[in-house]
């Protein structure tokens, strides 16, 4: 994803929504995040220019809200439930395991940028705690072993795909 590409998508958004008043800042940021998965510096700069607002203020507003991300999502998104029921069922151990195995950075992305781990307050599936959502699918009653086998499968797929690409 080159910055130029992202910027032109912001342009498209700006064209779709002709109201470029300052009140539109948060809705626009949300929409960019929906489309891009995160807020890039290029997108925020472009939005700042369009809404005639200093870049510092756009960045200030965006960093104030927890909902915004500043790094792109990895190929696979893991939503890890840290709600009360999951906590009681040892979801912290799952979190720590993911942290180690995927070498997670502070932005939630793995060192190889293939995974993004998002901590969620409650996924609403307490009956099968501890639970994660992996690329939109629920996986319940998880243990570290089960989690590893899920991730191993993804690694095998990725490896096979690369092999096929090279051949």
């Amino acid at each position: 994803m080159s910055p130029v590409h992202e910027a032109s998508r912001v342009e498209a958004l700006l064209a779709e929504r002709p109201d470029h008043s300052r009140d539109q800042l948060i809705p626009m940021l949300q929409e960019i995040q929906v489309r891009e998965g995160y807020l890039s510096q290029a997108a925020m700069t472009e939005l700042a220019v369009a809404l005639d607002t200093p870049v510092a203020s756009v960045y200030g507003v965006a960093t104030f809200y927890n909902q915004f991300r500043f790094a792109p999502l990895g190929t696979h998104v893991i939503e890890l439930c840290r709600g009360t029921a999951c906590h009681v069922k040892q979801s912290l151990a799952l979190q720590q395991h993911l942290q180690r195995r995927l070498k997670l950075r502070p932005d939630g992305n793995s060192a190889d940028k293939r995974f993004t781990v998002l901590k969620v307050a409650c996924l609403g599936a307490c009956s099968i705690a501890p639970v994660i959502k992996l690329d939109g699918e629920f996986y319940g009653h998880l243990t570290i072993e089960k989690l590893d086998s899920l991730l191993d499968a993804l690694d095998r797929d990725c490896y096979a795909a690369e092999e096929a690409g090279v051949a």
Binding site: Q41, A42, T45, V55, A71, D112, R114, D155
Partner: peptide
């Protein structure tokens, strides 16, 4: 100097398993 476009690091994902192999 005021347009910080493209200042981010490369965001392409690589397959660590493939790299290791």
């Amino acid at each position: 100097l005021t347009a910080l476009h493209g200042a981010e690091a490369d965001t392409g994902a690589v397959c660590a398993a493939a790299e290791a192999a």
